[in-house]
Design a protein around this nucleic acid. Structure first.
Lengths: 270, 270
DNA sequence: CGTTCTGTTTCGGCAGTCGAAACACTGTTT
DNA sequence: AAACAGTGTTTCGACTGCCGAAACAGAACG
């Protein structure tokens, strides 16, 4: 149980309040360990039981977690609902996208997702699930890489050079046999993406998943998100592919316009 | 407003980790003060600027808040989306209720809400908004009293005696002229509610709001939530009232059955 | 009726937190 | 341009309240 914390790694002091950081770590652990007891959560967060107990007590006071007094287990509380709902309401991007996603999912009969970039990762900020019983598991708030998959590559293609550099200078994890791993090849792919305005990615994150994505722009013309449809490759014929692509492009265009984007004939800069 | 917290000093030591508690207070303050800077949030939480800054920094590290580097303002982050979405997904009550709420809202053309009791308060855990431009403002995660309003009174009528006692022994706040304030009268009203199986409340929480509610039961027969429709009193004719009531009763019954409840002709006793 | 899990409580030492105040920065006013 | 009035950021030392360890208490096995 030698708890050697990495926060001590020599360098400058940061503003991190460790007890708060541990509490948040615990809260996020609760997402993946619902209905767990003190001991299990203590193991999941690599903290002591006493600390975990105190943190849970504190979080419970504020309604972030809820304790089942019978079974002595903890779950996310109703304050978490409040946070989630309000952060959604406060995001113009998400509220605008919701009906577009619903429409896109209905037309394609597959999952429709909205992804944004945060640092060198993508995050799913909204989604509408496929009506089919067999569908890709995806969830709002989940993170992933930028270099593999349809939506992620859209985001990477329109990210600042510095971000692209950070991504390719790290190890490009190969999730499948067709995941991009060569930095130079990836760079030229990104260029193609910028020109074509969409991505069709098959089996890059998982061998059985395809993804078709397009960029979403706001009033300033910046790419602020990626709109993507994903599903099992088994349902992807050539016909369907073209159909989904046109729906995705139409939806991305519509969403961009709703956000204030106007196509500019001349993107002229000297 | 009336936030007389427990005595901070002196009596019984609790397990509260104050830094975490303050961080949560800050996080919840961010719900009502989106896009605020350090100073404003420090004032809202009655903390010092330095503490607020450090807490925000820590929360940002975990993605709970997001900082706009340009404007130096803070908003709820994407981890909040994750928490909200997951806590919804993890709740069988909520996932089951969602389509019922959508249906109820469509049929009545008013807000449809699902409320649960937590201690001596009610919390809205799910809702579907009215299509009308004029509609009651309500939001998931918001709390309120148990003694006034349709849904709240349903919850109170089926709460343990101890809870009822706590509620009536406190001051029964009068939100409007027709809010119940007399403990004895309230007690007999609760008895009527248990017998009739619904509540029609007009102007108890706000003079211009009506609410029609019914109890939701789970497999054990316990009342676990209240299903309610609310809207502006101006839209409530006698006809409409009866119509909404029947829709609410039907929806509550359907939701209860989806949760495993079965009407028992004879209540067995040992 | 032990055994072995749980969750809860206590306690003291010292790491970590926190307030105050200085600092840096940006935009506005004179 | 210089003074000003706001921000947000950084430093620092004192002291407090956090945290790990270990004891305690209940429940759920066998």
């Amino acid at each position: 149980m030698a708890r050697s914390k990495e926060a001590k790694s020599g360098e400058g002091a940061s503003y991190l309040v460790t007890s708060v950081d541990r509490a948040m770590q615990l809260l996020l652990a609760l997402v993946d360990h619902p209905d767990s007891g003190v001991t299990e959560l203590a193991e999941a967060t690599q903290n002591t039981k006493s600390l975990t107990f105190r943190l849970l007590y504190t979080l419970e006071q504020r309604g972030l977690v809820r304790k089942d007094p019978e079974r002595r287990t903890y779950t996310l509380g109703y304050a978490a609902l409040l946070l989630g709902d309000q952060s959604r309401q406060q995001s113009r991007l998400i509220t605008t996208a919701d009906p577009v996603l619903a429409d896109l999912s209905a037309k394609t009969e597959e999952n429709a997702l909205l992804l944004v970039r945060e640092g060198v990762q993508h995050i799913c900020v909204a989604m509408c699930a496929s009506p089919h019983p067999l569908r890709i598991f995806a969830a709002v708030g989940r993170k992933g890489p930028l270099h593999a998959g349809g939506g992620p590559k859209i985001l990477l293609a329109h990210a600042p050079d510095e971000v692209v550099h950070d991504v390719v200078s790290g190890a490009l994890e190969a999730f499948t046999e067709v995941s991009p791993t060569d930095p130079d090849a990836l760079a030229s792919v990104l260029e193609v993406i910028r020109q074509e305005g969409y991505v069709i990615s098959i089996g890059e994150l998982d061998p059985n998943i395809f993804s078709i994505a397009a960029p979403v722009r706001d009033a300033s013309g910046e790419v602020v998100a990626a709109l993507a449809v994903n599903g099992p490759t088994g349902r992807l014929s050539d016909d369907i592919r073209d159909q989904i692509l046109s729906h995705v492009l139409e939806a991305a265009d519509r969403l961009s316009r709703l956000l204030g984007w106007r196509e500019r004939a001349d993107i002229r800069i000297g």
